[in-house]
Computed example of a mutant assay.
Amino acid sequence: MEAVRFLQTLFISALASSLVFASDPSPLQDFCVAISDPNDAVFVNGKVCRDPKLAKADDFFFSGLSIRRNTSNPVGSTVTPVNVAQIPGLNTLGISLVRIDYAPNGGQNPPHTHPRATEILVVLEGILYVGFVTSNPDNRLITKVLNKGDVFVFPVGLVHFQFNVGKSNAVAIAALSSQNPGVITIANAVFGSKPSTNPDVLSKAFKLDREMVKSLQSIF
């Protein structure tokens, strides 16, 4: 009888374990269209792997995050990525970094999302006003003013931003939970799509005059 109970327990444990791990892996690109011809196939993460015996230190190395970047652009910020494109050894490890430089008095990393990653940001210099918006239907804005050494988390997929409220340059480092987190800058995606979205759609969605929408599209 004890043997039967033991086998039952073992079976239930095995079934529970299989259910826990029965899920798709997180995608590493925007989409993957299924095809039947292997000659037209691409790798899901866009990378192939080197023989581990041939791996070298430079496969896991990047230099340059100490360099201050030029922020004289329309948004007043520059993002320096350190993902699988810069460090091949990150492939399949599910993590990456960015350095963000912000111009004084309003330099910003404008509202955007990372469809495949949570982000944790630490301020190295300056003062940043940061925040994210929760999903529908609440769309609650959660914000904080960060000083040097402060840390803030932006949950995966949510619209978020950083804005330099100080009079000097600001610098932050962020880690992301994907080797290829992806970035969707909201204004660029909405008003700068190629081809352009029908202005009537955006006019109704944003409650803007149609000519205003066309003007915004021309900017992006």
Rank of each mutant, 00 (worst) to 15 (best):
I120N: 04
Q179V: 10
L208F: 03
D24R: 13
A172R: 09
T143H: 14
D138P: 00
I120R: 07
P74G: 09
N180V: 09
D37W: 09
L19T: 09
I186T: 14
V183W: 02
V33D: 09
F161Q: 01
V130R: 00
L93S: 04
F163E: 03
F11E: 04
L7T: 14
V156F: 01
T78E: 14
G64L: 11
G89V: 04
S96F: 02
F154S: 06
L28W: 02
K214G: 08
V171N: 02
H114T: 12
K214A: 05
A3Y: 12
S13F: 06
T80S: 14
S178F: 06
D24N: 13
L54N: 14
H160S: 06
I12E: 14
S196H: 13
V156P: 00
E2L: 14
L146S: 06
H114A: 06
I142P: 06
S17P: 01
Q108L: 07
E125N: 09
Q86C: 02
V48N: 12
P52K: 01
A174I: 11
G46A: 06
I127T: 15
L158T: 14
F220E: 03
G46V: 13
R140H: 12
L15N: 08
P111R: 03
Q108V: 08
I127E: 13
I67A: 10
P137Y: 05
L97Y: 13
V159K: 09
N198C: 02
A170C: 12
P111W: 08
A175D: 04
A172F: 12
D58P: 00
G46W: 09
L121F: 11
A103M: 10
H112W: 07
K214F: 02
F132I: 00
Q179K: 05
F43P: 05
F11S: 07
L124A: 02
V151S: 05
S215C: 05
E211H: 09
G106M: 02
K207S: 12
S218Y: 00
L141K: 07
S26F: 08
F163K: 07
R50G: 09
A189P: 07
K144Q: 13
S96D: 06
S177F: 00
K56H: 11
S23V: 11
A85T: 15
E211D: 14
Y102Q: 01
L141Q: 06
A3N: 11
P199W: 04
I186K: 08
V123N: 02
N188R: 05
S13T: 15
N169A: 09
D40S: 15
I186H: 00
Q108Y: 03
D58C: 11
K214I: 12
F60V: 03
D37E: 10
V123W: 06
G182L: 10
C49P: 03
A57W: 08
G64P: 12
V4H: 09
N73W: 14
K194P: 00
H160A: 00
G149T: 03
I142Q: 01
F61L: 10
I127P: 00
Q108P: 08
H114F: 11
H160C: 01
K148G: 03
G106L: 02
N91M: 11
S196C: 11
F62A: 08
S178C: 07
G131C: 02
F154K: 03
